[in-house]
């Protein structure tokens, strides 16, 4: 967790970088990319998990998002707006990509029903559980998958997710509720243990 002074300093730095990048400063733009690359890449990475070359696809998509940002820098008003814009564009690009490759995804994604059942005991932070959960999230439909990613990776509340994805708040809440129920059920089936 960042302390308030550190957060304020980071905000000022990003503000300055944004202003310089808008004037065509490539180094400042690179600074903006470095500040947000893990966010954009991870959203894409979670989304492309079911693809055989998911990491490469995620990196390609993340690069496209930043190129799009470079072409639209003039429209970015502040560091907060930049973050919101990046999440929104990444989300929409992920959904577009998934729709274009729906058949391919269906063929290549790992279905939990076909995966061997795992009954090993696990503890908090267990990598087996982590890996399994990522696979389970990858089997969710596109929009619920994105909602879950924004909720638990980006720590956004449902109202913020609704704004990012242009989605009614109740739809976001319903996606979250149903996704959690599905994931709980899958964890229970795979690990023989119920997570509450």
């Amino acid at each position: 967790m960042q302390r308030p002074e550190a957060a304020a300093r980071a905000h000022t730095t990003l503000d300055e970088a944004l202003a310089r990048a808008k004037k065509g400063d490539q180094a400042a733009f690179a600074e903006l990319v470095r500040a947000h690359q893990s966010m954009v890449f991870s959203i894409a990475q979670r989304f492309m998990h079911g693809f055989s070359d998911g990491r490469a696809l995620a990196e390609d998509l993340a690069q496209e998002v930043f190129i799009h940002l470079y072409q639209n820098l003039a429209a970015i008003e502040s560091p907060e707006h930049l973050k919101f814009w990046l999440r929104k564009v990444t989300g929409h690009r992920c959904i577009d990509h998934a729709r274009r490759h729906k058949q391919q995804t269906a063929r290549q994604s790992v279905s939990l029903d076909d995966a061997p059942e795992m009954h090993a005991a696990f503890q908090f932070g267990d990598t087996i559980m982590t890996t399994a959960l990522r696979r389970m999230i990858a089997t969710l439909p596109e929009k619920p998958r994105l909602v879950v990613t924004l909720r638990y990776q980006e720590d956004l509340d449902p109202t913020e997710i609704a704004a990012v994805l242009d989605m009614p708040l109740n739809t976001v809440k319903s996606h979250l509720r149903r996704s959690l129920a599905i994931l709980r059920e899958k964890v229970s089936r795979s690990f023989g243990e119920t997570l509450v």
Partner: peptide
């Protein structure tokens, strides 16, 4: 809930690597 904690753990951010910005540029 524990489920949510597990999800946070599974969905923590990953870095694409130090050269990512250079590749974008």
């Amino acid at each position: 809930s524990r489920m949510e904690e597990e999800l946070k753990q599974a969905l923590r951010r990953e870095d694409p690597g130090p050269d990512f910005a250079d590749r974008v540029l």
